[in-house]
Write a protein that binds this DNA or RNA. Structure first.
Lengths: 140, 140
DNA sequence: TATCTAGTTTATAATTATTCTAAAGTAAGT
DNA sequence: ACTTACTTTAGAATAATTATAAACTAGATA
């Protein structure tokens, strides 16, 4: 069914590398996420709403969750812990940090933060990653 | 009803400063949280379970949530964003950071992390706080 | 100290984000 | 074209949290 043109190869490859068959729904999700100039942040609910808004045949919630989860596990998406009851995802998987301002996420390029000192991991453990979240508030 | 002895004054004061009347349930929660040598981390569910385990008359879930929320708003507890579907709280409200290892939270003293470089807040905003989470994995 | 009232507690229902289930549909190998 | 294992989907289930509203109580007042 899926027209297997070169244009979609990159998006299909991400799915395959996540162990997912490139079905229509998944390819559309993959394109929506990765076929753009700038990376962005989203919640699954936001993704679902913005994609389904323009579609007559809606993609189901479960498919969004499954696909996002698999893409995350394969390393194509990064999950952010910013608020305690919504998962934010980032299509920018390079090492970087975030400002968080009342539900809005802003990237901080990796080179804008440098450590002078960092602790060692407890014995038997190693550091998987270091995440900095700078929370913002209004100026007075 | 509440025996207003000096021993409890400090725990009662935390409640009052959070705008809460020092009822029996709340004083017990406040004592459970703050009447100890070392600070600790907890989820509301864990707090409820460990307190109610030894009680014949259970404190209701709503009271735990309300009290924790008010104490947090008053600055007596710190909420941590570590996992996306459970709120962790910390009775250590001083500035510090965390290791996070598969559901387990470990404090990192403030002086163990130093920044060489930090970005400025976007215009109109100021920095509320800077949180570092170092995620750990096993040394295989 | 008895009374009163606004604030509290509780069980339960409601909500939100997410995961599970199982029936109907489809990709891709033969 | 056929087959089979993987997908999609609607809807149910779950988990964390918040809301509701009836019964209860702290603490001010008479």
């Amino acid at each position: 069914m899926q027209k297997m043109n070169n244009k979609n190869k990159i998006f299909i490859d991400k799915l395959r590398s996540a162990g997912l068959r490139p079905t229509n729904q998944r390819v559309e999700i993959s394109k929506f996420l990765f076929n753009r100039k700038n990376t962005f942040h989203f919640t699954v609910e936001e993704l679902k709403n913005s994609m389904n808004l323009k579609r007559s045949k809606k993609i189901s919630t479960a498919t969004f969750y499954n696909t996002v989860h698999a893409l995350k596990s394969a390393g194509h998406l990064k999950e952010l812990s910013l608020e305690n009851n919504t998962s934010y995802y980032d299509t920018n998987i390079t090492s970087h940090h975030h400002f968080f301002d009342n539900g809005k996420v802003i990237d901080i390029k990796s080179d804008k933060i440098a450590f002078h000192k960092l602790p060692e991991a407890p014995k038997g453990k190693k550091i998987k990653n270091v995440e900095v979240v700078i929370r913002l508030e209004n100026n007075n």
